[in-house]
Design a binder for these strands. Structure first.
Lengths: 141, 141
DNA sequence: CGCTAAACTTGACTAATTCCAGAAAAGCTG
DNA sequence: CAGCTTTTCTGGAATTAGTCAAGTTTAGCG
C-alpha cells in the first residue's frame, strides 16, 4: 500500500490536521478515482462517524489547496485522485464507469494548442477517452 | 438563422415525427450548447405546453439516434448540440459556464493516440479546455 | 491551560434527472 | 380511412448529488 504522510501534506498546505482530513486524504491516495460516497463510507469505517457534510467540506478544502483533483466524467458523480501536477488523462468505461489513468503530455502536445482561443485565457486542458473496458466488452459479447 | 429540416432528419433516423421533437431539434440546432431548461422554455414558447418529461425523453431519443450530442462539463447541467461527427471540442469558461466551440482534429492528432490503452476499446476522445472568457476576465480585474 | 478561528455536526433544502402508470397520438395494415 | 399496435406524452413522486445555515467542537497558538 502506498504510504503517504497525510499529516505532513496537510501541514505543508497550511491546512489544519484533523482526523477526517487525514482519513479522507489517505483514502483518496490509496483508492484513486473514488466517488464521494465510497470515500465517506471508508472514512466512517475508520473513524466511526463522520458527517456527509464534513466529507464534502474536506474534499473541497483539499481540492482548493491542490492536494487532490476533482474529476467528473459525464454521467458520473464526482471522483477524486491525488495525482496532481502530472499530465495524465482518463480512460472511462461506458459500461461500468470505471476510470483508468493514461499517460499524456499536454504541455508538449502541439495538437492541443488552441489556435483560435477567441480571447479566452486557457488554464487547463482535460482529455477524456471514452471506451469499453475488457471486462465490460466480454460481458456484452 | 441556419434552417434545418428537422422533419427529414427525424425520418432519416427512423424516429416518429412529433411536434415536440421537431421543436426540440430545431431549438438545439439554432442554439447550440443549450441546457435542458432553456430548451424546455423555448419549446413551450413555441408549442404552448410541453412537459419536462417529454423534453428529457426527446433529448434522450435524439441522443441515442445520434442526431444530437450531449455534453456535460463538470459543474454544469447537461447541454446539447447538433454538431455531431466533426471533431470539434469545447472551451468552457470557469466564470460563467459558457461554452465555445473550437476546431480540433482528433483523428489526425498523433498526441491523442493512446499507446497504453490497457485493453480498452476506444470509442471517442473528448477534449475540454478550461479557461476564462474575455467578459469574465474583465469583470474580475 | 485557555482562547479563537477554523472545522465539524445536524438537518433542512435545492437542482437535475429519472421512474411510474395511465392517457393520447402516430403510423401501419387491410 | 377505421382499427390496432406501438410509441410517446402527461403529471406526480422518487432519487441522487450536492449546498446552505446555525450551532457545537476542536486544533493550534500563546
Amino acid at each position: 500500500m502506498p504510504v503517504i504522510d497525510a499529516t505532513a501534506l496537510l501541514r505543508d498546505a497550511s491546512l489544519r490536521v484533523t482526523r477526517p482530513r487525514v482519513a479522507v486524504l489517505s483514502m483518496v491516495a490509496n483508492h484513486p478515482h473514488s466517488d464521494t460516497d465510497s470515500i465517506a463510507t471508508a472514512v466512517r469505517r475508520e473513524l466511526g462517524s463522520v458527517s456527509t457534510q464534513a466529507v464534502y467540506d474536506v474534499l473541497r478544502a483539499l481540492t482548493d489547496a491542490g492536494l487532490v483533483r476533482r474529476i467528473e466524467p459525464a454521467g458520473s458523480p464526482a471522483r477524486f485522485e491525488t495525482r496532481v501536477g502530472d499530465d495524465h488523462h482518463h480512460l472511462v468505461c461506458r459500461g461500468c464507469g470505471g476510470i483508468t489513468d493514461v499517460r499524456g503530455a499536454v504541455g508538449a502536445a502541439p495538437c492541443l494548442d488552441v489556435r483560435d482561443s477567441r480571447g479566452f485565457t486557457l488554464e487547463r486542458t482535460e482529455v477524456t477517452y471514452w471506451g469499453t473496458c475488457p471486462a465490460c466488452r466480454a460481458r456484452t459479447e
